[in-house]
Design a protein around this nucleic acid. Structure first.
Lengths: 78, 78
DNA sequence: GTGGCAGAGGTCTTTTTAGACCTCACTATT
DNA sequence: AATAGTGAGGTCTAAAAAGACCTCTGCCAC
Protein backbone atom coordinates (compact mmCIF):
# COMPACT_ATOMS: atom_id res chain seq x y z
CA UNK A 1 0.00 0.00 0.00
CA UNK A 2 2.96 2.27 -0.65
CA UNK A 3 1.68 5.28 -2.54
CA UNK A 4 3.34 6.74 -5.58
CA UNK A 5 4.54 9.68 -3.53
CA UNK A 6 6.01 7.40 -0.87
CA UNK A 7 7.70 5.38 -3.56
CA UNK A 8 9.33 8.55 -4.81
CA UNK A 9 10.65 9.34 -1.34
CA UNK A 10 12.12 5.88 -0.97
CA UNK A 11 13.74 6.13 -4.37
CA UNK A 12 15.29 9.49 -3.54
CA UNK A 13 16.55 8.07 -0.31
CA UNK A 14 17.96 5.05 -2.15
CA UNK A 15 19.72 7.23 -4.68
CA UNK A 16 21.22 9.27 -1.87
CA UNK A 17 22.43 6.15 -0.11
CA UNK A 18 23.97 4.86 -3.30
CA UNK A 19 25.77 8.11 -3.83
CA UNK A 20 27.18 8.07 -0.31
CA UNK A 21 28.35 4.52 -0.80
CA UNK A 22 29.97 5.21 -4.15
CA UNK A 23 31.59 8.37 -2.83
CA UNK A 24 33.41 6.11 -0.42
CA UNK A 25 34.35 3.69 -3.16
CA UNK A 26 32.47 0.83 -1.54
CA UNK A 27 30.80 -2.01 -3.40
CA UNK A 28 27.48 -3.41 -2.21
CA UNK A 29 29.32 -6.39 -0.75
CA UNK A 30 31.87 -4.23 1.02
CA UNK A 31 29.18 -2.11 2.62
CA UNK A 32 27.29 -5.28 3.41
CA UNK A 33 30.30 -6.54 5.30
CA UNK A 34 30.83 -3.21 7.05
CA UNK A 35 27.34 -2.96 8.46
CA UNK A 36 26.13 -6.56 8.62
CA UNK A 37 23.30 -6.07 6.19
CA UNK A 38 22.81 -8.51 3.34
CA UNK A 39 24.00 -7.08 0.04
CA UNK A 40 20.77 -8.06 -1.67
CA UNK A 41 18.90 -5.99 0.85
CA UNK A 42 21.11 -2.95 0.37
CA UNK A 43 20.56 -3.29 -3.34
CA UNK A 44 16.81 -3.20 -2.79
CA UNK A 45 17.09 -0.23 -0.46
CA UNK A 46 19.07 1.71 -3.04
CA UNK A 47 16.35 1.04 -5.57
CA UNK A 48 13.65 2.26 -3.23
CA UNK A 49 12.06 -1.16 -2.87
CA UNK A 50 12.27 -1.21 0.91
CA UNK A 51 10.93 1.16 3.54
CA UNK A 52 13.91 0.91 5.87
CA UNK A 53 13.62 1.17 9.64
CA UNK A 54 15.59 3.44 11.95
CA UNK A 55 17.83 0.66 13.20
CA UNK A 56 18.78 -0.30 9.68
CA UNK A 57 19.43 3.37 9.02
CA UNK A 58 21.78 3.54 11.99
CA UNK A 59 23.61 0.41 10.88
CA UNK A 60 24.05 1.82 7.40
CA UNK A 61 25.35 5.07 8.82
CA UNK A 62 27.91 3.14 10.85
CA UNK A 63 29.03 1.20 7.81
CA UNK A 64 29.32 4.37 5.79
CA UNK A 65 30.88 6.29 8.65
CA UNK A 66 28.43 9.15 8.35
CA UNK A 67 25.83 10.42 10.78
CA UNK A 68 22.38 8.92 10.59
CA UNK A 69 21.06 12.42 9.99
CA UNK A 70 23.28 12.70 6.93
CA UNK A 71 21.56 9.65 5.48
CA UNK A 72 18.26 11.50 5.56
CA UNK A 73 19.75 14.64 4.16
CA UNK A 74 18.17 14.39 0.73
CA UNK A 75 15.42 16.30 -1.02
CA UNK A 76 12.07 14.69 -0.34
CA UNK A 77 10.20 16.87 -2.78
CA UNK A 78 11.23 18.82 -5.81
CA UNK B 1 14.74 -9.89 18.47
CA UNK B 2 15.64 -6.29 19.18
CA UNK B 3 18.90 -6.31 21.13
CA UNK B 4 19.50 -4.30 24.27
CA UNK B 5 21.71 -1.93 22.32
CA UNK B 6 19.08 -1.44 19.64
CA UNK B 7 16.49 -0.82 22.30
CA UNK B 8 18.70 1.93 23.69
CA UNK B 9 18.92 3.57 20.27
CA UNK B 10 15.17 3.48 19.84
CA UNK B 11 14.67 4.95 23.28
CA UNK B 12 17.09 7.78 22.58
CA UNK B 13 15.33 8.45 19.34
CA UNK B 14 11.98 8.41 21.11
CA UNK B 15 13.16 10.84 23.76
CA UNK B 16 14.45 13.14 21.05
CA UNK B 17 11.14 12.99 19.22
CA UNK B 18 9.26 13.73 22.41
CA UNK B 19 11.45 16.74 23.07
CA UNK B 20 10.87 18.09 19.58
CA UNK B 21 7.13 17.64 20.02
CA UNK B 22 7.05 19.31 23.42
CA UNK B 23 9.24 22.16 22.22
CA UNK B 24 6.47 22.92 19.80
CA UNK B 25 3.82 22.68 22.47
CA UNK B 26 2.04 19.83 20.73
CA UNK B 27 0.14 17.08 22.48
CA UNK B 28 0.28 13.52 21.18
CA UNK B 29 -3.14 13.97 19.69
CA UNK B 30 -2.26 17.24 18.02
CA UNK B 31 0.83 15.76 16.42
CA UNK B 32 -1.23 12.72 15.51
CA UNK B 33 -3.62 14.99 13.64
CA UNK B 34 -0.78 16.91 12.00
CA UNK B 35 0.95 13.90 10.52
CA UNK B 36 -1.81 11.31 10.23
CA UNK B 37 -0.21 8.86 12.60
CA UNK B 38 -2.26 7.30 15.37
CA UNK B 39 -1.51 8.87 18.75
CA UNK B 40 -1.10 5.48 20.37
CA UNK B 41 1.61 4.74 17.85
CA UNK B 42 3.44 8.00 18.46
CA UNK B 43 3.31 7.23 22.16
CA UNK B 44 4.96 3.88 21.51
CA UNK B 45 7.55 5.44 19.26
CA UNK B 46 8.47 7.97 21.95
CA UNK B 47 8.96 5.14 24.39
CA UNK B 48 11.22 3.25 22.00
CA UNK B 49 8.80 0.41 21.53
CA UNK B 50 8.70 0.70 17.77
CA UNK B 51 11.45 0.56 15.17
CA UNK B 52 10.04 3.27 12.90
CA UNK B 53 10.45 3.26 9.14
CA UNK B 54 11.73 6.03 6.92
CA UNK B 55 8.29 6.93 5.63
CA UNK B 56 6.95 7.30 9.14
CA UNK B 57 10.00 9.42 9.92
CA UNK B 58 9.21 11.70 7.01
CA UNK B 59 5.59 12.02 8.09
CA UNK B 60 6.64 12.90 11.61
CA UNK B 61 9.05 15.50 10.31
CA UNK B 62 6.26 17.07 8.29
CA UNK B 63 3.99 17.15 11.30
CA UNK B 64 6.71 18.70 13.44
CA UNK B 65 7.82 21.00 10.66
CA UNK B 66 11.44 19.98 10.97
CA UNK B 67 13.72 18.22 8.52
CA UNK B 68 13.81 14.45 8.60
CA UNK B 69 17.52 14.71 9.27
CA UNK B 70 16.81 16.73 12.38
CA UNK B 71 14.73 13.86 13.71
CA UNK B 72 17.79 11.65 13.60
CA UNK B 73 20.01 14.26 15.11
CA UNK B 74 20.39 12.62 18.50
CA UNK B 75 23.24 10.87 20.26
CA UNK B 76 23.21 7.19 19.47
CA UNK B 77 25.96 6.34 21.90
CA UNK B 78 27.29 8.06 24.96
C1' DG C 1 37.35 -20.27 -20.77
C1' DT C 2 37.71 -20.33 -15.96
C1' DG C 3 37.41 -17.74 -11.77
C1' DG C 4 36.36 -13.73 -9.18
C1' DC C 5 33.65 -9.76 -8.24
C1' DA C 6 30.02 -6.61 -9.42
C1' DG C 7 24.79 -5.28 -9.22
C1' DA C 8 20.20 -6.90 -9.72
C1' DG C 9 16.78 -9.62 -8.35
C1' DG C 10 14.20 -14.05 -6.79
C1' DT C 11 12.48 -17.05 -2.83
C1' DC C 12 11.30 -18.24 1.69
C1' DT C 13 10.24 -17.89 6.84
C1' DT C 14 9.95 -15.25 10.88
C1' DT C 15 9.24 -11.09 13.09
C1' DT C 16 7.62 -6.51 13.12
C1' DT C 17 5.37 -2.34 11.63
C1' DA C 18 1.24 -0.01 10.20
C1' DG C 19 -3.10 1.38 11.31
C1' DA C 20 -7.33 1.74 13.61
C1' DC C 21 -9.75 1.61 17.73
C1' DC C 22 -10.50 1.21 22.50
C1' DT C 23 -9.56 1.44 27.65
C1' DC C 24 -7.55 3.26 31.81
C1' DA C 25 -5.56 6.43 35.25
C1' DC C 26 -4.34 11.04 36.02
C1' DT C 27 -4.98 16.08 35.95
C1' DA C 28 -7.15 20.36 35.52
C1' DT C 29 -11.20 23.05 34.78
C1' DT C 30 -15.82 24.12 35.37
C1' DA D 1 -18.60 15.32 40.72
C1' DA D 2 -18.75 15.64 35.94
C1' DT D 3 -16.28 16.74 31.80
C1' DA D 4 -12.44 17.10 28.74
C1' DG D 5 -7.80 16.40 27.63
C1' DT D 6 -3.46 13.90 28.46
C1' DG D 7 -0.05 9.90 28.05
C1' DA D 8 0.21 5.01 28.43
C1' DG D 9 -0.91 0.88 26.82
C1' DG D 10 -3.91 -3.22 25.02
C1' DT D 11 -5.97 -5.71 20.90
C1' DC D 12 -6.47 -7.08 16.26
C1' DT D 13 -5.57 -7.73 11.00
C1' DA D 14 -2.92 -7.02 7.07
C1' DA D 15 1.16 -5.53 4.98
C1' DA D 16 5.99 -5.19 5.11
C1' DA D 17 10.82 -5.55 6.92
C1' DA D 18 14.39 -8.59 8.40
C1' DG D 19 17.43 -11.98 7.25
C1' DA D 20 19.52 -15.67 4.87
C1' DC D 21 20.56 -17.78 0.71
C1' DC D 22 20.63 -18.50 -4.09
C1' DT D 23 20.65 -17.36 -9.26
C1' DC D 24 21.71 -14.64 -13.38
C1' DT D 25 24.28 -11.59 -16.28
C1' DG D 26 28.14 -8.62 -17.25
C1' DC D 27 32.90 -7.38 -16.73
C1' DC D 28 37.72 -8.04 -16.19
C1' DA D 29 41.92 -10.46 -15.22
C1' DC D 30 44.46 -14.47 -15.47
Amino acid sequence: MISKKDKAILQKFGAHLKQLRENRGLSLRELSYACNIDNSKISKIEQGMINVTVLTLVELSNGLEVSAAELLNFRKSL
